[in-house]
Design a protein around this nucleic acid. Structure first.
Lengths: 249, 249
DNA sequence: CGACTTGTTGATGTACATCAAGGTACGTGG
DNA sequence: CCACGTACCTTGATGTACATCAACAAGTCG
């Protein structure tokens, strides 16, 4: 588990995320505030736990670099991955204000997070409504993704679930500039996929084979290749067209 | 589908929800603003659709009276209930600012909702940071409930899922003042439960029988009775104690 | 010093037998 | 007629067991 804050290595003024299409430009005042709001960074290596269910954290986070995932565990040992977190995503707001975290977070690669003290969130709300609005927007977007996930677990078959998840992850990677020429590095294992989709490792493996012979994608050696976007979307039972669903936000 | 706004029948100054432990008291200015923010009411009867997936709504809602649920449908006809909505809950923020709704909402009883124009949400953020903070808090709480739901669908057995759902609904009813002496009216059918838990109607029915013989609860004629809170919680694989999980928020 | 074994580990692939959940059908009772 | 109840057979998913393969560390030998 990560404890101490790391001094900042990336000044907000040069934040690489600001270039992403997802983000609106900040005003000078906002930028200055955010920069002062950022207390430091968290650096974690592949496999490390960033925070654990039941612990308290004085900080809210933003993922600056790398991949991680949020998960919950059941007393009987079962693990459910809730979602994967991409650069620019908020982390830790779920537990809201000063309560125990209800989930854990683990790094899939080496990661850098920006840490913001929870007790200054009120400052942000009172002085920068625009930023407050952005926070709400991010929260609402992640709620939408959770909804879609719930639909997957509840109503899609294992093949559809798998197709949906891989397509979703690819599209998010693409939006974050982590995909190139239909290819993206997926730094997780079949076990992670199984834990996300609520299925066993063995069944995940079999279903993955079935999906592979559809020819819509390839996933080998940590590299995911999207071969037929529309085909995979059809298998995933995507209902909206891709443009509607992913309007480059 | 409901279209027109209904003139208000309940002035915000006399809102029955303000008495709930869930809510902090408003300042006079906040109350005045909220009252002006409320454009009118939506009245819907049991079974009516309040808004549908794919439609646009100019309003955000707060449930004033009654029960309803949010759901999504798949092109193949599958329906997944995302969550049940209780008085005081926010509705429609998921789709965030001016986009198509990604889910539908249907009334389980006759319901009254307060409608707030989306395009004045910015006003709220810029003038009443306290209220903005509340909105975020509500969103974060509902995200937490979705997380728990996801854990259910992914990792709990059908019996555990069922126990969890019924306990969850009872506790929420209790917090909303809808439960009395261990009993609450559950205005939904086994089909709704099946659609929430991602299982078939038949299997839901069988599992319900199994749960009934545990003696921890009884559910007949729309009335749910909690007979053994701790026992049901144990069956549901609740990991935190009830107080931790439900600190009367 | 470098090349070649050997052992270990984690991820993946595959074959069963078993079991939980689904689907259809046909009841009841209000 | 709709919600609920139950029997039946089928199918999808699980669990265990074991094989393969690459990455990596330690040790051995030329």
């Amino acid at each position: 588990m990560i404890n101490g804050l790391h001094p900042r290595t990336v000044p907000c003024e040069q934040c690489p995320l600001r270039a992403l299409a997802t983000f609106r430009p900040f005003t000078a005042e906002e930028l200055e505030f955010v920069s002062g709001f950022k207390a430091g960074e968290i650096h974690a290596r592949t496999g490390e736990t960033i925070f654990a269910q039941g612990s308290r954290s004085d900080y809210l986070f933003t993922l600056l670099r790398g991949w991680l995932f949020r998960y919950k565990t059941l007393p009987d040992g079962g693990r459910q991955i809730l979602n994967f977190v991409f650069p620019g995503d908020f982390l830790g707001l779920q537990g809201s204000i000063q309560e125990e975290m209800q989930h854990s977070a683990e790094a899939l690669t080496n990661v850098v997070l920006c840490a913001f003290p929870r007790d200054r969130l009120w400052d942000l709300y009172s002085r920068f409504p625009g930023l407050a609005f952005d926070v709400t927007w991010l929260a609402s977007r992640s709620e939408q993704m959770l909804d879609e996930n719930l639909l997957s677990l509840g109503r899609r078959t294992s093949l559809q679930r798998l197709a949906y998840l891989l397509l979703h992850l690819y599209l998010r990677a693409e939006q974050t500039g982590l995909a190139d020429d239909g290819k993206a590095i997926f730094p997780f294992t079949q076990q992670h996929v199984a834990d996300t989709l609520g299925m066993s490792l063995v069944h995940t493996n079999k279903t993955l084979k079935r999906l592979a012979i559809s020819g819509t994608m390839r996933w080998r050696d940590r590299t995911f290749e999207l071969l037929d976007r529309e085909g995979l979307a059809a298998l995933a039972l995507y209902e909206a067209t891709l443009d509607q669903k992913y309007p480059l936000i």
